[in-house]
């Protein structure tokens, strides 16, 4: 009986040794550079009727302050970049536009008199809702405050007046200080 017992156990031990020695390689794992992360948000701001273009950048290490003139109109184009690999910068905005039905851009501001609306060249989704990639802004009196930009993924609705109305998940939420002068 002993022999039968060991007939089964010995190959098992052998298999164990083989599998350990086979898997015991010393290869180093490959580095992963996360893609799809949005590292940078750009606001490309054009004063209406002019060719004055200012680009404001938001990254985790550096945030630009926006300066606008009082009682003026501006066009804001928002851009999302992945700069995690500096040699291969990816424009995630294209993806957002491609998946326009699942995305929505929204702004909130603490600056009184500052309002925005979708621009004529904005991206329109298949339900004919403009998703605020391009927006027109009107400024009021001189003041300071912040503009908070959101990119919302799969909002439950695209109509509303505050972030709470849209549901969905927040892909982007960044603050720009703004000075109206």
């Amino acid at each position: 009986m002993k022999t039968q017992f060991f007939k089964l156990v010995v190959p098992a031990i052998f298999l164990l040794c083989v599998s350990i020695s086979c898997s015991d390689d010393d290869d180093n794992p490959d580095a992963i550079n996360e893609e799809e992360t949005i590292t940078t948000v750009l606001l490309v701001v054009t004063e209406e009727g002019t060719t004055n273009v200012d680009t404001y950048t938001w990254t985790e290490s550096d945030q630009d302050d926006i300066v606008l003139d009082a009682d003026s109109t501006y066009n804001f184009k928002i851009q999302f970049l992945d700069q995690s690999d500096p040699t291969d910068v990816e424009d995630i905005t294209e993806e957002v536009i491609e998946e326009k039905d699942e995305h929505f851009v929204f702004y909130e501001t603490t600056t009184s008199g500052l309002t925005f609306a979708s621009a004529s060249d904005d991206t329109i989704d298949s339900d004919s809702v403009a998703i605020n990639i391009s927006t027109d802004w009107e400024t009021g009196d001189a003041t300071t405050g912040i503009i908070r930009a959101y990119l919302i993924h799969e909002p439950t609705t695209k109509t509303g007046s505050s972030r709470d109305d849209f549901g969905g998940e927040t892909d982007i939420e960044v603050d720009f200080n703004v000075t109206i002068q």
Binding site: H153, E154, T156, R163, D164, G167, G168, E169, T170, E173
Partner: peptide
């Protein structure tokens, strides 16, 4: 329960119903 950031969590906590 899949949320993007803390703002989403606050919205979830303040809502009696799930957001989706």
């Amino acid at each position: 329960s899949h949320i993007g950031n803390v703002g989403d969590l606050v919205r979830a906590i303040n809502n009696d119903f799930p957001l989706v």
